[in-house]
Write a protein that binds this DNA or RNA. Structure first.
Lengths: 342, 342
DNA sequence: TCAAAAACTGTAATCGATTACATAATCGGC
DNA sequence: GCCGATTATGTAATCGATTACAGTTTTTGA
């Protein structure tokens, strides 16, 4: 029943335009080489036959895969959605397919990523996961993929790949400054997981600004978390148990802030009346949470686009430029979870 | 500096094993046709040369794309993560690459999906989006892709494609039965968005079971929502304003339940003491929310795997079997957000 | 023991593009 | 008006696999 109208090939177009396949191919990829007249004739023929280039054939001939791989630590985290959208958009004009792999549900073996390159299944990769083993990266470099990997948001300390990320330290500073402006002096921080580069950047930005403003510091005001709701909740328990409670808390992620707030509220404190809370990320939920969360917005769409652009750039000029570090600016979004201390 | 050790081709293997390329190819894809002795020799040669099949070449020759596309309404919703993990796992053994597209951030034009098929960029698709226009689907059918599309979780009413989904009506019944068992009589429901097939299935299951149990019904106890946190919050406002308040609320999604709970708490009610809340989905956050949410668990991993299996089956036997509807069973998870009415 | 069938294996065409090289046509300068 | 340079186009090899068809060897059966 199905008409399967065999798709037109470059041969069909050539026949229809009465030129050679070489000419058709040139019209497609290097129109400057073809005279006005033939170009028009060929374009006409393309239109007429409904021709579409067969990527598999092109990729085979050009020895490329026509695909890039995005490594996401955990697709379930709402934080990544906007980023992926930005990435998709960035690749929309190109002829690269975008593959996505979740490194949590399907942990990356040391050889896996390199294997993708080795087998010619991908031309490049963007990693949102800073936890890739350096052995795995070594492998990729060995297969000549050293300049076709870009890190986004997270990165591997010491490895030499381009990195696109928000200005995490600046975000932390903005948060502290905001709380300071409101009149807070005793400010706590719930960190991300140990060993994470974002944890470090945000913690250091926080400490730096606190010092700069001459605010008091107590060791127990730096609470170890892991970006999760639960860790926020746990942090609330700690804070409730303190003698000398902070009047404001800066959380390393919005999810942490949600856990924290619900824990504090359950413990009888009011947010922001008794204690102010600032998050980091500005995920979708943050605006509609109760109370709406004051937070540091990362321009996730922008981050994604930039990463796509950088990778496309690398793929185009195989010239191996120096790896650069691009910082995307962040922004304080003031909402209902912060207020002057009582 | 990069050694680029040109990957071995099937020719290299053939040479090394002193057989023809045809034989090597047969060892790869149809070992039964080759004698024990040559097979071993070839395998040895494959090992020795480090040969890996070039998918681009194979795909070109076999006239396939070697890829499937997953259409996700909104990658940001935590609900989808487990499903995508399941899908990835389902395709892990196969030689299909998995492309993911977010239909919200990058709305699907009518021709887009069909275009992927037409251009031979994908062999099949799994749609988590029930909102695909039937014009778009018609197009796909026209390109002979009618039996290479599978719907997962959501579906298009009236279209004839295989559907894998949770038993939504049963989930709703379980929720109502649970509340009834606790002693609740006045049960409200916050629905999903109008026109969504899941909204309908869950609402009908709820109404059906409520009727079966002889529970009272009031029109205002069916509150229109849209699966979002905000709609839950809005529902709380409505409920707080009612004269004759329900003692329990069944929400069509966990996110709605979160919004509802925070709204109710903000309004001075306690959950579950004053009012019980049940969600639907059991996303990761639900277990660690405060209070931990009683909800209907969908086996998301299983859903994903099944969809992958069904699509792989269709791709293998191009025989166009009847579209089937697979219901994956759901489960009540009892946590802290429900209790007997006071 | 011999013909027919079965089991292996090789030759070469093919998938649909790109591009090096060759050839033909046109142009410009003196 | 002639020659080299430039421009436009075609021929055919190539990317790396699969597979129809043919040829060779082995097995089977009477």
């Amino acid at each position: 029943m199905n008409k399967k109208p065999k798709p037109a090939t470059i041969q069909d177009v050539a026949r229809s335009a009465m030129v050679s396949t070489a000419t058709v191919s040139r019209v497609l990829s290097n129109p400057g080489l073809v005279s006005e007249a033939t170009r028009l004739a060929v374009q006409e023929a393309i239109h007429e036959t409904g021709y579409r280039v067969n990527q598999a054939a092109r990729n085979l001939r050009m020895q490329r895969a026509g695909a890039v791989l995005i490594l996401v630590p955990n697709l379930g985290k709402p934080f990544y959605s906007g980023i992926l959208a930005g990435i998709s958009e960035g690749f929309a004009g190109s002829d690269y397919a975008v593959l996505i792999a979740d490194t949590e549900s399907n942990p990356l073996q040391d050889e896996t990523l390199a294997g993708y390159f080795r087998d010619g299944r991908i031309d490049g990769a963007i990693s949102l996961d800073g936890g890739i083993s350096s052995a795995a990266l070594q492998q990729c470099v060995r297969y000549g993929a050293g300049d076709r990997i870009v890190f986004l948001c997270e990165w591997v300390e010491g490895a030499s790949f381009p990195v696109i990320s928000s200005d995490n330290a600046e975000g932390a500073r903005l948060a502290i400054r905001h709380l300071h402006d409101l009149g807070h002096k005793k400010i706590a921080h719930v960190t991300g997981p140990d060993g994470n580069v974002l944890t470090t950047a945000r913690r250091e930005g926080m400490v730096e600004e606190r010092t700069r403003l001459g605010l008091p510091a107590r060791p127990e005001w730096i609470i170890r978390g892991d970006f999760s709701l639960e860790s926020g909740h746990e942090a609330a328990r700690r804070i409730l148990a303190m003698d000398d409670r902070p009047t404001a808390v800066f959380c390393a992620a919005d999810m942490v802030a949600f856990g924290l707030i619900s824990g504090l509220v359950a413990g009888g404190l009011k947010v922001p009346e008794d204690i102010s809370v600032v998050g980091f990320d500005d995920i979708e939920m943050s605006g509609s949470y109760v109370p709406a969360l004051t937070t540091i917005r990362q321009d996730r769409h922008q981050l994604g686009r930039r990463a796509a652009e950088v990778l496309l750039g690398q793929l185009a000029n195989s010239s191996r430029n120096l790896p650069t570090k691009t910082a995307v600016s962040v922004e304080l979004v003031t909402r209902a979870s912060t207020a002057p201390p009582s």
